[in-house]
Design a protein around this nucleic acid. Sequence first.
DNA 1: ACTAAAAAAGATATTTTTATCTTGATTTAT
DNA 2: ATAAATCAAGATAAAAATATCTTTTTTAGT
Lengths: 152, 152
Amino acid sequence: MLSNACKYAIRSILYLSLYSDKTKKIGVKKIADELETPQPFLAKLLQQLTKSKLVTSTKGPNGGFYLSEANQKNSIWDIVENIDGPNKFNQCFLGLSKCEDENPCPVHYIAAPFKNKILANFRDKTISQFSSEIIDTDKVLSLKDYDALKQE
Amino acid sequence: MLSNACKYAIRSILYLSLYSDKTKKIGVKKIADELETPQPFLAKLLQQLTKSKLVTSTKGPNGGFYLSEANQKNSIWDIVENIDGPNKFNQCFLGLSKCEDENPCPVHYIAAPFKNKILANFRDKTISQFSSEIIDTDKVLSLKDYDALKQE
DNA sequence: ACTAAAAAAGATATTTTTATCTTGATTTAT
DNA sequence: ATAAATCAAGATAAAAATATCTTTTTTAGT
């Protein structure tokens, strides 16, 4: 559904939301390590996310990535839009370009509600709301160490 | 979500379900034309679907593809499984290998019901049930001629 | 038998996505 | 100032998905 790039991006941003701030920056190596994602690929990705103002970075010793207050106010949808493009959740399941409620493909009414619900969820909650919820409900972010939150 | 190959496969099979039978076979050229899919690619795909017993073919003049009675009893899910693999609808939305109800990723409860519903819908209805429904409710298979059904 | 129509099979090409590598620029701390 | 750490930028590589091309096999009709 989402590209790998997009999945990595979401996970990285949620990770940064939980563990970083302007006084505690985190380097690519650490992030890639924690999330078990390919490091150079993630580096490129974070570069792009920085350019798009979805994350913030500083160079030099003690530099790294973090989420600014402004970054925290973005939504998951902003990430998806940035990486996978704005049409990720409004495309026809069977690839037809003119599939709508009035002219539905055979699976339109199966898929459409799903897509709408996900879109709404992703659009209406901020990253910081997501991360509060992650903390409150013990959700999983990492592969390597998937109860990382419990030992914080 | 689904690969192009899989979308083409589903559309082709629904098309064959509607318009073909053992006495009325349809060639690749016609199918590709009607569905506006790349013809040589579709040829390969139909080859594979034939090998997998999801469609039936005969060679020679007046040969072509059709759905046998047995083929009509398959489900959309059988197609997805064959082309995109059996894990298409039970993978974590964020790509985690250990995301489940007991250990959910941050978007698990947003995505999981959706995936389950689609899976159920695709698994529990036969191709022929789908095509009856297409006829009853005027659904769309092709772009080229997207009220094709109405003029039958 | 011969011809033409059609799918099957196998080889090749293109594009996109994923991933890596190398070099350059910036910044902190000494 | 210099060195080391860290991101930025650009080039390259590998893999997967998509698409095409060519040849072979089968079969119906003549």
